[in-house]
């Protein structure tokens, strides 16, 4: 287990370099010039050139990337081209928002998905058939569309939740939670249906196994069979799906933060991309890459805990 974690950490450094390089190359293709953005459309070419030189934008691309990477290795993510604020500070302010959103969504997806999937498999009947249909619909609905519908329903038509904005956790957990209900709902709805469907299918598969029949014939209580055997065995494939879903929610968070005007990393990176603020885009990219690595690591560790076949080597 420890070897797994160490290997992953080494690998994550390589991944961060690859991901940032990809972002860098892609951003260099995006039309736009931060110097012109700062100075406005009426600036003289001379002025623009001087600012470009000041910002280091006149350097060849490999040199620019090399300088950025050298800074990162010294713990310096650079400054925003637009505001001049340190990127690390910008991220530190906005990270709690995105993490709150992601953690609550992961919680909602895993808990609700498991309960609905397992329940529909064990109870069967109409709930199961409904889930089979709804999961297809849930898969097809993009989270930003769900977000807009949720705002129209629960913030405009029935005013129970705030439509936009974020309340920090330190100002009290209740406003924090209320401000996140709709964003989390929008972000996790698709994931819930996918995890529930996976859970239902694997639970049905487990329920058809002979060891379940043996336990039933032996007079073991159904509740004990469901929790000790069905849940445990069906959790394995569902865990893989959950990992993929959470990584997908990271992308979804960018949209959802924009719809709900949440001051998180998603809205930061959107602004930075449109204004061609390369250091900020790269910084957020690094953070997102790290989140993906951590999610995958957690999934792998949990997989080892749940599955003796992985553990016994």
């Amino acid at each position: 287990m420890i070897r797994l974690i160490v290997t992953r950490l080494v690998l994550s450094a390589v991944l961060v370099v690859i991901a940032s390089l990809a972002i860098f190359v892609l951003m260099s293709f995006v039309p736009g010039d931060p110097a012109r953005t700062i100075l406005g459309a009426n600036a003289t070419p001379d002025l623009v050139a001087r600012l470009r030189e000041q910002l280091g934008l006149d350097q060849p691309l490999p040199v620019q990337y090399g300088e950025w990477l050298a800074g990162v290795l010294h713990g310096d993510l650079g400054q925003s081209v637009l505001s001049g604020d340190p990127v690390a500070q910008l991220i530190a302010v906005r990270l709690p928002v995105t993490l709150s959103l992601l953690l609550l969504s992961t919680l909602a997806i895993s808990v609700i998905g498991t309960v609905v999937g397992l329940g529909s498999a064990v109870r069967g009947g109409p709930l199961g058939r409904l889930l089979d249909t709804v999961s297809l619909v849930g898969l097809a609905l993009p989270s930003y569309w769900v977000a807009i519908v949720l705002v129209a329903l629960f913030a405009v038509a029935i005013r129970v939740f705030p439509a936009t904005g974020y309340q920090p956790f330190v100002d009290g957990p209740v406003p924090w939670f209320l401000s996140l209900v709709l964003p989390v709902a929008a972000l996790s709805l698709g994931g819930i249906t996918i995890v529930a469907k996976q859970m239902r299918d694997s639970a049905l598969d487990v329920l058809g196994r002979d060891y379940i029949r043996v336990l039933r014939a032996s007079g073991i209580r159904e509740r004990s069979i469901v929790f000790k055997h069905v849940l445990r065995n069906a959790a394995l494939p569902s865990l893989t799906v959950l990992g993929i879903t959470v990584v997908g929610a990271l992308t979804g968070a960018v949209f959802v933060e924009n719809v709900f005007v949440l001051p998180g990393l998603g809205s930061l990176v959107t602004q930075a991309t449109t204004s061609h603020d390369l250091p900020v885009v790269l910084g957020v990219g690094v953070v997102f890459t790290l989140v993906v690595i951590v999610v995958n690591l957690v999934v792998d560790v949990l997989y080892g805990v749940l599955n003796p076949k992985v553990r016994v080597r």
Partner: peptide, 8 residues
């Protein structure tokens, strides 16, 4: 199929 793979 007659033994639970996750149990000793």
């Amino acid at each position: 199929s007659s033994l639970d793979p996750t149990k000793t």
